[in-house]
């Protein structure tokens, strides 16, 4: 795939944000906050980093694979999958509706291209990604496995089982990114269940940790992912601590947990879309 300019990628980010807002607004349900904050990550990954084939095959042999552990970011994931050719953009209008392949949380049951495992019940994705990474090692497939987790999700114990396992088994073909927005559904993470020093925690578990401090700046996100990639194959799993702002891109949604799981009404949608130019054409 030909590399796209930062300006072009930025346009995709803006369109992704429009998609997300229109999708959750249309069904008056879903989670807009976190996918707005992860737009740069999704776009950097799918349009710049992944060596992947939108002609989807479940086993993903010979490809870089991505797993979304915090499945409630589904609207953002569906947008980037459709915009990168996995399925028609027009299908985004079926999000969360009856008989759709775009389930509320990602699922394989309806055979949506791009999805390899269901997610939504938190804390399971890292384990699954580890299994895929180890299958690649058995097959001597040198491609990488990427996964995104929420920061609140790290409160699940299974994540730390997987963290311990990854270092012990030297799963160094995996890059785990944590969406470090400091928010969860009931409030800020430091009020709900303080994560304390995440960098030190992951390092203590034996991971190589890099920090992407500007998680809503495309260039920084790409640099962070490049840096993470440079650390693969060195005997340690790699963690990318991605500092983002929940709700980024819309002035009245940014930096608060209030839009974690609440859709905008008609008026709020109009106001939000007024701040996001239609760049690639709405679905």
């Amino acid at each position: 795939m030909e590399k796209q300019s930062i300006e072009q990628l930025q346009k995709i980010c803006t369109q992704l944000r429009r998609d997300v807002l229109r999708m959750v607004h249309a069904v008056q349900s879903g989670h807009p906050g976190a996918p707005l904050g992860c737009a740069e990550f999704f776009v950097a990954l799918y349009f710049d980093q992944l060596r992947h084939n939108p002609d989807f095959k479940m086993d993903g042999k010979g490809e870089d694979l991505f797993f979304l552990s915090n499945g409630h970011l589904s609207a953002g994931w569906y947008s980037v999958l459709s915009r990168s050719g996995y399925f028609p953009v027009s299908e985004l209008k079926t999000f969360r509706k009856l008989n759709s392949r775009l389930q509320g949380h990602p699922a394989t049951h309806e055979h949506l291209p791009g999805i390899r495992v269901a997610s939504g019940s938190l804390g399971q994705g890292l384990s699954v990604a580890l299994g895929v990474a180890q299958a690649k090692k058995i097959d001597k497939d040198d491609k990488l496995v990427y996964i995104l987790m929420g920061d609140g999700e790290l409160q699940e114990g299974q994540v730390w089982e997987a963290a311990m396992y990854a270092a012990h088994h030297k799963v160094d073909n995996l890059i785990a990114t944590v969406d470090y927005n400091g928010q969860q559904i009931d409030g800020p993470t430091d009020k709900i269940m303080d994560l304390k020093n995440l960098k030190a925690k992951w390092e203590a578990f034996g991971w190589e940790v890099i920090e992407t401090k500007e998680g809503n700046d495309l260039k920084s996100v790409i640099e962070g992912l490049e840096k993470a990639k440079a650390f693969t194959g060195k005997g340690k799993p790699v963690l990318n601590l991605l500092y983002t702002e929940m709700g980024y891109g819309v002035d009245f949604m940014v930096g608060t947990h209030k839009w974690h799981g609440s859709p905008p009404n008609d008026e709020q949608l109009a106001k939000a879309l007024g701040q996001l130019e239609e760049t690639l054409g709405d679905y």
């Binding site: 042999k61 495992v117 994705g125 990604a129 299994g131 895929v132 180890q134 097959d139 299974q158 088994h169």
Partner: peptide, 21 residues
């Protein structure tokens, strides 16, 4: 793969291995 005393992780890893064929 020895997973240690971590059954939840073991089930997830199994799902991943199955994805990989």
């Amino acid at each position: 793969f020895q997973t240690g005393i971590a059954e939840a992780n073991m089930i997830g890893i199994s799902a991943g291995l199955a994805i990989g064929g």
